[in-house]
Amino acid sequence: MSLVIHNLHARVVGGQQILRGLNLEIEKGSVHAIMGPNGSGKSTLSKVIAGHPDYEVTAGEVLLDGVNVLGMEPDARSRAGLFLAFQYPVEIPGVSNANFIRAALQARLAAGEELEATEYYGDLYKEMDRLEIPRNFTARSVNEGFSGGEKKRNEVLQMAMLKPAYAILDETDSGLDIDALKVVSAGVNALRGPNLGVLVITHYQRLLDYITPDVVHVLVGGRIVRSAGPELALELEAKGYDWIRDELSEAALAAEPVLA
């Protein structure tokens, strides 16, 4: 059981090619991290997997436990078990957090089935407590007027409630101070287990101090150029990304022609 990304090529609709033959396999129960310099395609990867309409896949496949999700609508991918924690969570004025999460859970039930309200609020409060989210949060509009930390906590809360099979955390550390980072990381760590595969996308090593990955990948120019254990993240932190670029400039990049 794994999320397999095979030879993925994607570009902005009618625009520039960004992913150029990306390969990755995230087994259930494991945590992978992708690091890379700005513009390497990190956020594009998360959006392409989730089905964002701004991007088109030009080759390759994304298999969720063996099923290619690329032909599916974003909502069908979500219901199939894919979760994306957004780098910039979107505000939805007038829709309360409680109603939003409830609607998302309801969308997973068969027609005619109703979510049991008491049970739902019981689960919600439990997860909110774990993330140190105050009760008045349920009545506030989704992400409206939230601080950076509140928004990211909300992403992790939704993840906890929706219980995905695979979760992609897109720069979840951006905009967080150290205390919020600890809370959010603890929330993610609590969800780790044999039934969840996680892909953490980050620019900085800092987040990986709190969410320790099993494997670290380096993404440059729309491809994974190096994969190793957590020590790779420390090396990148110490040396920056340039040394990888330098190593690649002669060898890897020259060997594989870049798709136009």
């Binding site: 701004d54 609508e73 909502d75 998302a104 969308a107």
Partner: peptide
């Protein structure tokens, strides 16, 4: 479109 994508990513259909 971002609002709709966000909600779809949580499992709601476009109409929902």
């Amino acid at each position: 479109a971002e609002q709709i994508f966000y909600m779809q990513q949580r499992g709601l259909s476009e109409a929902q």
